[in-house]
Design a protein around this nucleic acid. Structure first.
Length: 416
RNA sequence: GCCGGGAUAGGGUAGGGGCUAUCCUGGGGGACUGUGGAUCCCCUGACCCGGGUUCAAAUCCCGGUCCCGGCCCCA
């Protein structure tokens, strides 16, 4: 027997069905928000990923040299591809609102909520510099989680690079990039050591102040009241008010940095309220990326959400759909009536039912046992009575059955 | 890449040097070729891979693979 490759999953029908329900719901929500679905190649030039994110990304790719000597990789993220697509079409109607739910690959050590192959939902808005697009994207992200039944089970933490820069400048901090890098390490090193590093870069007083600002979390208004007068703060207040109109609430948490490699404004992460799992989704504004890929300078804001953490949290909350096979009708066949049964099965299929039928010729008892195992709602038994245009329709749940005219099958089955 | 814990039929498990590897469940068939979920019978089917120690290895040792989790990283 061959084993699976590390970090890859086999998905069997029972769990694929649950997955499909969740994925369809997510896609439907994106469509409700007026986003349009795209698809893209699973492989790209390795170089494409170096442009945006640098070498450490490249080391975590499934890459290879193809027969033409090109360095190729399975995509570890979608943003460079989307930016490439955007850059090569100048006739797109702005704002561009795209979503997609592709598979991606990252060569990392698997652990809870992290695999080597996974699905990641992506949604982006291009061409809007204002906070309205940030609000729309955040609202979509939250509506997706809410509609899946996670309302109240997660917290949307928002930070903002521009606000942070403004604060740091006011405090007289010059080494801004370096400060961000330290902030990113905040939860990974002891508190005292963190403060020490901050003070090394920003100075003793400023370091202390930054540390205090980082520990304040709450509504935008609450956090701003601790910070004082702020230009960017006005935008964030507007963001908060817009989101209120969408019926959504966010938490301002300035300790969120998100790698920050290319984010230029708002950044956000949705976290499990119980703090058990890693971030469910993350995103932000990245106004410089499209031009990096040769496009016109284009403001952009978006997010990505992997399926792994989402599945973990939904399972913990008991809201992951049931993992079972399902079919509407099983057509059982009495010997000698296969042709008639086939015609009836096809008729029901055309009417939109999910219809399975016996292919084995085994005993009726076995056929019904099979119907039971595949969770058929109804079994149709095709035998002698078909000569009078009738079949037996058996409700597999109640066990009740009646002989009905073929033409009336549809209503009988739709009764429950 | 590093660290910890695991791996026994399709799924869940017992057994920790010795005779035909335990039990539950599932799958196929039958009792019962026009009625499923029950019962009974039969069949099916496993010691992750490679090496070592030993008269003898599922069991002990080494290496690898995969799984679960943690670190780094998280695009």
């Amino acid at each position: 027997m061959f084993q699976k490759l590390k970090g890859f999953r086999d998905i069997y029908p029972e769990s694929m069905r649950a997955r499909r329900i969740v994925f369809d719901k997510i896609n439907a929500t994106a469509r409700e928000f007026g986003f349009h679905e795209i698809d893209a190649p699973s492989v790209e030039h390795l170089e494409l990923f170096r442009v945006k994110s640098g070498d450490e990304i490249v080391e975590q790719t499934f890459s290879f040299v193809d027969k033409g000597g090109r360095s190729i990789t399975l995509i570890p993220e979608l943003t460079p591809t989307v930016a490439r697509m955007l850059a090569s079409r100048k006739d797109l109607i702005k704002p561009v609102k795209w979503f997609s739910f592709p598979k991606m690959w990252r060569y990392e050590e698997p652990q809870s909520g992290r695999l080597r192959e996974f699905y990641q939902f992506n949604a982006d808005i291009f061409g809007v510099a204002g906070i309205e697009a940030d609000a729309e994207v955040l609202a979509l992200a939250m509506e997706i989680l809410d509609s899946l039944g996670l309302k109240g089970k997660y917290e949307m933490r928002v930070s903002d690079r521009l606000l942070m820069e403004e604060i740091l400048r006011k405090l007289g901090v010059e080494r801004i990039e370096e400060t961000f890098r330290v902030i990113d390490k905040r939860d990974k090193i002891p508190e005292e050591q963190f403060l020490g590093k901050l003070q090394d870069i920003a100075g003793s007083d400023a370091g202390l102040e930054i540390s205090e600002i980082l520990s304040v979390k709450g509504t935008v208004s609450e956090v701003l009241s601790k910070i004082g007068e702020s230009e960017r703060g006005e935008d964030l207040l507007e963001l908060q008010e817009l989101l209120a109109a969408y019926g959504k609430e966010i938490t301002l948490d300035l300790s969120i940095v998100r790698g920050l490699a290319y984010y230029t404004g708002v950044v956000f992460e949705a976290h499990d309220s119980k703090g058990e799992f890693r971030a469910i989704l993350g995103g932000g504004r990245y106004d410089n990326v499209v031009q990096l890929f040769g496009g016109e300078p284009t403001p952009a804001v978006g997010f990505g959400m992997g399926d792994a953490v989402l599945e973990l949290i939904m399972k913990r909350e008991g809201i992951w759909p049931e993992e079972r096979m399902e079919v509407d009708i099983f057509v059982a066949i009495v010997p000698g009536f296969r042709k008639e049964a086939t015609q009836i099965a096809m008729k029901l299929r055309k009417e939109g039912f999910r219809v399975d039928m016996d292919l084995t010729g085994r005993s009726l008892g076995k056929q019904l046992k099979y119907a039971n195992r595949i969770n058929a709602r109804y079994a149709i038994i095709v035998g002698e009575e078909v000569r009078e245009g009738k079949v037996v329709a058996k409700n597999m749940k109640s066990g009740g059955q009646r002989t009905v005219e073929i033409g009336k099958l549809k209503e009988v089955i739709n009764e429950n």
